[in-house]
Amino acid sequence: MKVERVELMDALRGFSLIGILLANMLHFQFGSSGVEIIESANLLDKISYYFVKIVVEGSFYPIFGFVFGFVLIKMIESREASGLKYKNIVFRRAIGLSILGAMHIALVWEGDVLLTYGSTLFILLVFFLKRRVKTYFVWGIILTAILGVGAYFGSSFIKLLKPLTAAEIMIYQDGTYAEIFAQRIGDFIIGDGLIFLLTLPIGWLFLTIVSFLAVGPFVLFGIGMAKKGAFLQLANSTQTYKKVAMLVPVGLLLKGFIIFDTPFSLFIYSAGTYVLAIGYIALFAWLFNRYQTQMTNYFAPIGKLSLTNYLMQSIICTIIFYGYGFGLFGKLGVFVGILLSVIIYVMQLKISQLYLTRFSIGPVEMMLRWFIYLKNPRKVN
């Protein structure tokens, strides 16, 4: 039995990268001082800031998680269809992603998600990979409810976050790589690092649980939809996707509550991020069915190289904004950051298209698959 590859998932993964870059751009530019800087920004930057918060932030990582779960199950089904085992493959993938994530945090940028997905894979491997379809949706809803409760009380936690001081901002703007490295993780190594190392098993367990809470709902939804055979026959479900896509304006309306300072704003906003993510997935599937050739040509290549492109976004942006590069940290404004995100993404689209005319797999994807399969990835079934 041959397991069908769902081309939509490559394109959807590629589409999610523009949202991830736009959301990350605020942190690349301003770090944890973003909110304070916006309060004194001009009107264009304030509009741009809320555009990112409402249209983008929090709604594209769920899409990436959905694809992650969907593709994971398709890989497992493919292995099983060929009479091969999958558990060691998933285990090494979890380790590989965790190592890449830890290196990303230590060497480039602290806003990593690879470690999160690597940690999530461990929980999936132990508890979730051979369950009934209903189980994935039930647990996805349970985790969503838990996050909703967290969002309700989350405003108090956000107020505890320490904004960057003027001295810390200067380090990001003018510091050397060594100084920025120390700024990024120095407090951990000198202060809480020893405590963490002494309690490493507990710390790792805590990280794994938090990671699963963060991305688990849509990963589980993706697994459930893959097991249901969704997206294999797009033409047969066009009207369904079109109806579900109506969640897009609903999600935008809910996320718009972030503008208002009420005790429930963060909770409503958080609910909107998930509603909007579901709407975006359905809208993309509907458009993909109508314009499959065009959307495959544009979005699938960058999606197939998503790991390489994700890491390159961090490298490019830290060079632009940090002192060991152009030192533009906090200087360009949110609107210019949006334009810069679009330029970087379009460049990655074109480069990915050209790259795949000569190679079948990205450089980082190649290294990860060597580790996972312990042989040349091109020879993997």
Rank of each mutant, 00 (worst) to 15 (best):
H104R: 11
A41D: 06
L17A: 11
V55Y: 03
G34Q: 04
F91A: 14
L43P: 01
Y50V: 05
G83Q: 08
I73N: 04
E80Y: 09
Y50S: 05
L17T: 02
S78C: 11
I20T: 07
A23C: 11
I18V: 14
N88Q: 13
M25P: 06
L84D: 09
F51P: 08
L17S: 04
N42E: 11
H104G: 14
V56Y: 04
N24M: 06
I76E: 00
L44M: 12
I38G: 06
E57F: 10
M103H: 05
F28R: 07
F68W: 06
Y61T: 11
A106V: 15
M103V: 14
A41V: 06
F91H: 06
G34H: 02
I95T: 04
L22D: 01
F30Y: 15
N24H: 13
V35T: 09
A102Y: 04
I73R: 03
K74R: 14
N24R: 10
E77Q: 15
L43K: 14
V52N: 07
A106G: 08
S16L: 08
K85L: 13
F64I: 05
E39H: 13
I73M: 14
I95D: 00
I54R: 03
S82N: 14
F91R: 15
M75A: 11
G31H: 02
A94Y: 00
M103W: 07
A81E: 10
L72M: 11
I105G: 07
Y50L: 08
K46E: 12
G69K: 00
R79I: 00
H27R: 14
H27P: 03
A102E: 00
L26Q: 10
L21I: 10
I18D: 00
S59M: 10
S78P: 07
G19K: 05
E57W: 08
I73C: 08
L97D: 00
R93I: 00
V55K: 01
I99K: 07
G96D: 05
F51H: 05
P62K: 09
G65K: 03
K46N: 12
Y61D: 02
F64E: 03
S40P: 00
I99V: 15
I54M: 04
S59P: 12
G69T: 02
S32H: 08
L44W: 11
M103S: 12
L17V: 06
G58P: 06
S98Q: 04
G69V: 04
M25S: 13
I76K: 01
Q29L: 15
L21V: 07
Y61S: 13
I63F: 05
K74S: 15
S59T: 10
V67L: 08
G65I: 06
H104T: 06
F28I: 09
F60T: 00
S59A: 15
E39A: 13
E77W: 09
K87I: 01
Y61K: 13
I105L: 10
G65F: 01
F30Q: 01
Y61E: 08
F30T: 02
F70S: 12
Y49E: 03
I38A: 08
S48Y: 02
F91M: 13
